[in-house]
Design a protein around this nucleic acid. Structure first.
Lengths: 228, 228
DNA sequence: ATCCATAGGTGTCTTCATGACACTTATGGA
DNA sequence: TCCATAAGTGTCATGAAGACACCTATGGAT
């Protein structure tokens, strides 16, 4: 008996969606973008930005399109997290959803457009009630982000091109939800060749000003060492 | 415009499947179970064990069922790896596949039943030509396994209840594809409280015999420290 | 009874990464 | 000129990890 014969195209009635866990950094806190559900089911709760997949669309494409429809942002950094497929996870009908993490730069974000869609930013440690199994989606995304942030430069997607060390440290503290020693943080950072110090200072956060840095992707490609 | 309105149940024509990357340990090598494709497309190539998902079936259930149908094994350790969803990955039609890693104990395996299904074990560093995108599936599964094996006790699913330290070390060497120093390996192992030494020896591999150990899941739950 | 072949088992040293810790410096505004 | 404030700097102690060589227990051969 061939396994394939058990199911054919007619019998399978499962919809496939993507859901995006969109992270941003603001006020020294990691935040997550959610939309308010105006319709049943779960009316009044909040949910992730998501949508169904097109028939001829790659999974990654679908995630980018869904995000673009909401935010107008393109070329956003996205990573697949995992598939959620409990049979009863969505009361409207059988749906399997693939979750994606998106990291976006708040300052490039069109906040008005967000409002139009009924979306809102929430600090990740103070989320409202979420629909369906979206809490587990957010949790697995945060866990993955925390794990990867120590060994890969992904967190830099949450900062502008030029940034200061105190900014970067605050970002890491926000993501990891713990405070870091600034001398140790700088020591590690100096061991990563891809960080290049500029001759420019950011004077917005202190009288003394802090030197700006940038992350050189080429250097990173040559020397993948990254440990913060 | 609501995103949901773009697609309804009628328009989406995507099948969803699971594919299992089944690992076993034999002859001091990590091996992977594959089936020979007797039919087009890709006739003659080898492929992973897979099947479509039932309408009322959890994703994890589907993976277990597919594995059971082939091997007769139940209660196998399985972990989701990721979803593969390129639009053109399967020439027969649009299919999204969720890959699962399964770790099984070769000695409990019914080898005759495997043969009936045209399945065969291959060392992971010497795989035959694989159908579709199954090579990437295998690679991502191996990468994940190598990462997780250092910090979690998953590899123990590949060994019997009672095992010797040399066996465990050979397993790690096989998975990681590098040789380890046995003194360093034992030192680390002794720091993990969940390993308990038995008063029994396995005499099958040497004249002197090697002490048997077992992994105490309760102890591990109390003290999650694991580092090999 | 002795010898031998073989895999099992054991400690030390060096190096390096990490965490803990306190003071000086540059600057703008009062 | 002073002050408030965030930026920036170095050392020490601890512990993990890698490199490294010899003794031991046993079964089988003689």
């Amino acid at each position: 008996m061939r396994i394939e014969s058990l199911f054919d195209q007619q019998t399978q009635q499962i919809k496939i969606a993507v859901d995006c866990i969109i992270f941003g950094f603001n006020n020294n806190r990691l935040e997550c973008l959610l939309i308010h559900r105006g319709a049943e089911p779960q009316k009044g709760k909040w949910s992730l930005i998501g949508g169904f997949i097109g028939n001829d669309e790659d999974l990654d494409e679908a995630a980018n399109r869904v995000l673009f429809n909401l935010s107008g942002l393109e070329n956003v950094y996205m990573e697949q997290v995992k598939a959620f497929g409990k049979a009863n996870r969505d009361p409207r009908g059988r749906t399997i959803s693939i979750s994606y993490t998106a990291l976006i730069l708040r300052s490039e974000y069109d906040d008005d457009r967000i409002e139009e869609h009924g979306a809102k930013w929430f600090p990740v440690d103070n989320l409202p009630e979420l629909a369906f199994d979206h809490v587990s989606m957010v949790h697995s995304a945060i866990t993955r982000l925390r794990r990867r942030v120590r060994n890969t430069p992904i967190a830099l997607n949450l900062l502008p091109e030029k940034f200061t060390i105190p900014q970067l440290q605050a970002l890491y503290e926000g993501i990891l939800n713990e405070s870091l020693d600034k001398r140790n943080f700088r020591r590690k950072l100096n061991q990563i060749s891809a960080f290049v110090k500029l001759d420019e200072k950011d004077m917005s956060a202190s009288r003394r000003g802090a030197f700006l840095y940038t992350f050189d992707q080429d250097r990173y490609n040559h020397d993948q060492y990254f440990n913060l």
